[in-house]
Amino acid sequence: MKLSIEQRRFFREYQPLLRQIVVLLVIFFGTIFGIIPAIQSSINLFGQQSTVQKDMNDLSDKMNILNSQSSESLKSDLFEMSAAVPTTTSVPTLFVTLEGVSGQSGVSLLNVSLSGGGSLSTESAQKSPAHSSGAKAVQFSALIDGPIENVLQFFETIGRVRRFMGIKSFDLALGVSGNVQAKIEMESYFAPLSIGAASAQAKLSPLSTEEEEVIAKVAALPNLTQATELPPPSIGIAKPDPFAP
């Protein structure tokens, strides 16, 4: 496109003015399309950086907590706690503990019966009455016989063994011979182990003083049952046979 002589003359005459206008336009559009978006992006980046920094702090705290606990000691503590409140109804350990307490106290364990007919089956176990702690209860009754001192010893010991049992009610009859027969309605507790894969971002807090005290209390209690292995946590490991024990 060729400019006429007049147009060329106009541009030549107004060149300084046009140059200023062009520069001002560059500044204007540069600000609109360059600086302002860059400032907005910087603000966004700053926000993202704050979020990532917070994540980093949380993760660092979590890492410190995990580093301060050894897997072995955690396993051992969990094993002890699971002896006090097993992951399943664990009726054999219940009987062994009862026998152990009876033996230690010097009373005869005449009879033990589970209150729920099907409380051994999984479905019935799931329907077991819940304790206020969130654990499920296996209810049973025991009939013991022995001298009064020994029966008192049984009552003292029953709540101080690592397999927790609670006495709901009892009926104690003192015979002429001096022996006492006691029918005790009791419950023991179990709570399934809920080991699941938590996300790395999930918050984690260290063991509190109260929790450590509880662990120490449980560890100090005598364990009258034979040691059983704690199932390894199945995190991210698919069981080849889900029905395998």
């Binding site: 050894s70 396993k75 304790h131 894969a197 929790e211 995190i235």
Partner: peptide
């Protein structure tokens, strides 16, 4: 992850066990 899962499980069990200890009645 294993240590984390153990710690979480231990804390959960600690709450349960602590409550049972608290509610225990010694009739002796």
């Amino acid at each position: 992850a294993e240590a984390e899962a153990l710690l979480v499980a231990l804390k959960q069990r600690g709450i349960i066990v602590g409550k049972i200890i608290q509610d225990q009645i010694h009739w002796g």
